[in-house]
Amino acid sequence: MSLVDTISEDMKIAMKARDKDTLSVIRMLKAALMNEKVKVNHELSDEEAQAVITREYKQRKESAEEFAKGNRDDLVKSTEAEIKIVEKYLPQQLTKNEIEKIVADTISETGATSGADFGKVMGAVMPKVKGKADGKLVNQAVKSQLNK
């Protein structure tokens, strides 16, 4: 079953269960997927759908951070609840150790030796971890390992 079909099925389940919170988040995801489908003018592949969901996840993470800075705990809690629902549709995220290992292997492969090689390493690492790791974590891992 494709990711889009899974989301549609989960929407039906949330409707039957009268789970308003889950339903509203799934509807937002479904709307984002439909907008992307119209934009690209074809049915979305699982990879394309994953990119849309990742984008929605990042938006919610950034919103939660901004709400926390503004001392809006009520909005932080609701946004974090949304994040938990969106996370169900993301692939299993890599741990910090796994990211650091991939970065170390990539540094060896590319022959990077200093911070000047940052772009080359990031360009090689990101396709390996696409959808499975937050870019900020990868960025930090590359910087820390190149600056040793």
Rank of each mutant, 00 (worst) to 15 (best):
S2F: 14
L3H: 13
I7C: 07
I7Y: 08
S8L: 13
S8K: 13
E9Q: 13
E9T: 06
D10I: 11
K12D: 11
K12V: 10
A14T: 04
A14D: 03
M15C: 10
A17S: 03
A17I: 09
R18Q: 12
K20V: 06
D21L: 13
T22L: 09
T22F: 05
S24M: 15
S24I: 11
I26R: 07
I26Q: 06
R27A: 11
R27Y: 11
R27L: 08
M28E: 13
M28R: 14
K30N: 11
K30R: 10
K30I: 07
K30P: 00
A31R: 12
A32W: 02
L33P: 06
K37M: 13
S45V: 02
E47G: 10
E48Y: 01
E48G: 06
Q50R: 13
Q50I: 06
A51Q: 15
A51I: 06
A51E: 15
V52S: 05
I53S: 05
T54I: 08
R55C: 08
Y57I: 07
K58M: 12
R60I: 12
K61M: 09
S63F: 15
A64P: 03
A64S: 08
E65G: 00
E65T: 03
G70N: 13
N71V: 02
R72Q: 14
D73C: 02
L75R: 05
L75A: 06
L75T: 07
K77F: 04
K77R: 11
K77T: 14
S78W: 03
A81C: 03
E82C: 05
E82D: 09
E82V: 02
K84A: 12
K84Q: 12
V86W: 07
K88R: 15
L90S: 11
L94F: 00
L94C: 04
T95Y: 02
K96H: 05
I99A: 01
E100T: 05
E100R: 13
V103A: 09
A104M: 09
T106K: 05
S108V: 14
S108I: 06
E109I: 12
T110F: 11
T110A: 05
G111W: 09
A112H: 00
T113P: 04
T113V: 12
S114H: 03
A116C: 02
D117L: 08
F118S: 05
K120P: 00
G123P: 07
G123C: 02
V125F: 00
V125Q: 04
V125I: 07
M126A: 09
M126Q: 10
V129F: 01
V129T: 09
K130Q: 09
G135T: 07
G135E: 14
K136N: 07
Q140C: 01
Q140K: 08
K143G: 08
K143F: 14
K143R: 14
Q145H: 03
N147A: 08
